[in-house]
């Protein structure tokens, strides 16, 4: 068990290293660098050389990579190309905002998805199942920008309850995002609830058809006791990984939703940094997103192991 966690941690570190190399290499391969991007048409001659010397761009690539990585490990991601702001602080604000948005979406969506998934499975093919299952398919198939726009239309334009766009600055205290943040939360929760609901539903249905479910009925276990003791612990195991993937997808920045609502989160920062050719920021964001993916998946695997006795215990056989 512990050995497995250590092994997964090492593997995670290796993949982060590889990702950082790919990000750095990719940025290196792009024509131009931070100075040509910053100086634009003036990027020539003495001015360019000075700029490069100032930013250390004249050093060999491996030296710069090493510097970037060792600073990043200490939490120092350098400054934006304009040199005015620390990337660490900027990204930190945005990360907090994204955490607020996705955290709320998860708090609302995951319990709702689990509940509805189980309800749909237990009342399979009844009205309640048909209603929520088709709603889920609906929510999954409509692109986010359409559902987000519809939400704005209904709640901001027609009803006028909540502003449809967020004008709060990125570094504002989190509480100031309310109530505007409710609409992007709803838009996100819709998509993720639909995904998780469908997984939970099919997993519970499969478990209900298992031999041990039939055995529980035939040994006279009351229905709800069977559901909670024999069905759910087994049925929810495989959904841990789906939930983890959804969380990683959310934390990785939900570009579309953030753009529609003008929400100052990681996703929009990513888009902005790319269009501004702010390479140091792009690099940092890519690295953070990779970290989130590796971390959340590791967490999911450890949780699955803890919850599944087949993985937790070794197969021991005795006479």
């Amino acid at each position: 068990m512990l050995r497995m966690i250590v092994r997964r941690l090492l593997l995670g570190a290796v993949s982060i290293g590889m990702v950082s190399l790919i990000i750095f290499g990719g940025v290196e391969l792009l024509p131009g660098d931070a100075c040509t991007a910053y100086l634009e048409r003036e990027a020539q001659g003495k001015l360019l050389e000075n700029c490069r010397a100032q930013l250390g761009l004249d050093r060999p690539a491996w030296e710069r990579y090493w510097g970037w990585m060792s600073n990043a490990a200490r939490g120092d991601f350098g400054t934006t190309i304009t040199g005015r702001e620390r990337i660490g602080k900027l990204v930190g604000d945005r990360l907090l905002n994204t955490l607020l948005l996705t955290g709320c979406a998860m708090l609302a969506g995951i319990p709702l998805a689990l509940l509805l998934g189980v309800v749909c499975a237990l009342w399979r093919d009844r009205a309640v199942d048909l209603l929520f299952s088709s709603l889920a398919i609906f929510a999954m198939t409509i692109p986010e920008f359409i559902s987000a726009t519809l939400l704005i239309l209904v709640f901001s334009v027609w009803l006028g309850w909540i502003p449809g766009i967020i004008l709060t600055p990125a570094d504002a205290p989190l509480i100031e995002f309310f109530p505007e943040i409710l609409l992007p939360i709803a838009a996100l929760a819709m998509v993720m609830t639909a995904h998780i609901l469908r997984t939970v539903r099919s997993s519970v249905i499969e478990t209900l058809a298992s031999d041990y479910a039939q055995m529980a009925i035939l040994k006279g276990v009351p229905y709800w006791r069977m559901v909670f003791r024999h069905i759910l612990p087994n049925a929810l195991l495989p959904t841990i990984n789906v939930v983890a993937l959804t969380i990683a997808w959310l934390l990785g920045g939900v570009v579309v939703i953030e753009t529609v609502f003008n929400f100052p989160g990681l996703g929009r920062m990513m888009i902005d940094s790319i269009s501004d050719r702010d390479l140091p920021v792009t690099q940092t964001l890519a690295l953070i997103i990779a970290l989130v993916y590796v971390g959340v998946n590791l967490l999911a695997d450890v949780l699955t192991m803890l919850a599944n006795p087949r993985l937790r215990t070794h197969k021991t056989r005795s006479a």
């Binding site: 055995m215 040994k219 024999h230 006795p309």
Partner: peptide
């Protein structure tokens, strides 16, 4: 009724299934 059946199954009529490996709930000791 389901309740009456629950009282009979396991108490007065018990099943020994074909494949016990799959008939025992995997997450319970």
């Amino acid at each position: 009724s389901p309740g009456q059946l629950q009282d009979i199954r396991g108490r007065r009529l018990a099943l020994i299934p074909q494949n016990s490996g799959q008939s025992l709930t995997p997450t319970l000791r």
